[in-house]
């Protein structure tokens, strides 16, 4: 069992008030992924190299501007973990061969969207975990191929309308349980986070930073453009995802899954769904009670297993 150390992040007051990540990026206004990235970059710090896969955040660095105070490398959609492998190995080799000052070492961080993490990049991610690569992996999960106009991906939730699931039932598939898939690899650490719960996020990044080996995080990233809501609602929707139980905040350490924020009085999923245009067909022209209750039931079933 990992040492349960005391976090320096006990409340919002403990979070940094100035931020490391540069402003001026071309991400959408109200981007939940950027919100999470800002928070976690404060904790990871500038002694880091972010290895990025194709996705919305490809455009974080557009020549000649980068928001990163540390380093970054853009790879391709499928192989960011392999890029992290190359960088990590190179840094280790340089230190071992005394060709680099160990103070110049960096945290190697993969940054991918759900399209890469849940799909095209899954093989490379699985292999990096199996090689016990010492890296952080951050998936900003906006539940669809956002950069291309929000077509459904393997992360899209049941019933959501996307550019390729426009019918009255929305997306017929179910969101892939990437947390479980990752945990099955028994990496050092797996966690879910959301920018709307910054203390929980900070503690998890802090914990991940104290470990070695593969440390895997999925950040639910409310997406005003892809989910069709007013950008000002990003945090509210993120909080509702937690309060309705749709997005369980949890972590995996040493073979154990712990929930870090259990919503005791879960709000009905309707509260979360109705704020988003991608679920409007569940409420208009008339309420699709069957589909809403199906979504509710899946959430209830999940939590009934947790509470047991």
């Amino acid at each position: 069992m990992a040492e349960q150390s005391v976090s320096i992040y006990r409340s919002m007051k403990d979070l940094p008030s100035t931020h490391l990540l540069g402003t001026g990026t071309p991400m959408c206004a109200g981007c939940g992924g950027l919100e999470a990235l800002n928070q976690l970059y404060d904790i990871i710090g500038e002694k880091s190299v972010f290895v990025n896969a194709a996705g919305c955040m490809t455009l974080l660095s557009v020549y000649p501007f980068t928001p990163f105070r540390g380093s970054w490398l853009y790879t391709a959609m499928a192989s960011a973990p392999a890029g992290a492998q190359g960088v990590r190995d190179a840094l280790d080799i340089l230190i071992q061969k005394k060709r680099m000052n160990p103070d110049d070492d960096m945290q190697v961080v993969v940054l991918t969207g759900d399209g890469s993490a849940y799909g095209m990049g899954l093989s490379a991610t699985s292999a990096a975990m199996e090689r016990e690569l010492n890296f952080l992996y951050i998936c900003y999960d906006n539940e669809g191929y956002g950069n291309t106009g929000q077509q459904f991906s393997a992360a899209t939730p049941h019933g959501a309308k996307t550019a390729t699931s426009t019918g009255s039932a929305g997306y017929p598939g179910y969101k892939k349980d990437l947390f479980a898939i990752w945990a099955a690899h028994k990496p050092a650490y797996v966690a879910t986070i959301v920018g709307a719960e910054p203390v929980d996020l900070a503690r998890k990044i802090e914990k991940a930073m104290s470990m070695k080996g593969p440390r895997m995080l999925i950040a639910l990233s409310p997406c005003p453009t892809g989910w069709d809501f007013d950008p000002k609602e990003t945090v509210a929707i993120g909080k509702l995802a937690v309060k309705t139980g749709v997005w369980p905040l949890k972590e995996y350490v040493d073979g154990q899954v712990q929930h870090t924020k259990v919503p005791r009085e879960r709000r009905p999923v309707e509260d979360y769904l109705e704020l988003q245009g991608r679920y409007r067909h569940l409420f208009e022209p008339e309420k699709n009670v069957r589909l809403i209750s199906e979504i509710q039931k899946r959430v209830d079933d999940y939590w009934s297993n947790v509470e047991d």
Partner: peptide, 14 residues
């Protein structure tokens, strides 16, 4: 890649 000399490699262009 060195902590003391940050670089962003292989970035996009518009």
């Amino acid at each position: 890649f060195r902590a003391s000399s940050p670089v962003s490699q292989a970035v996009a262009v518009l």
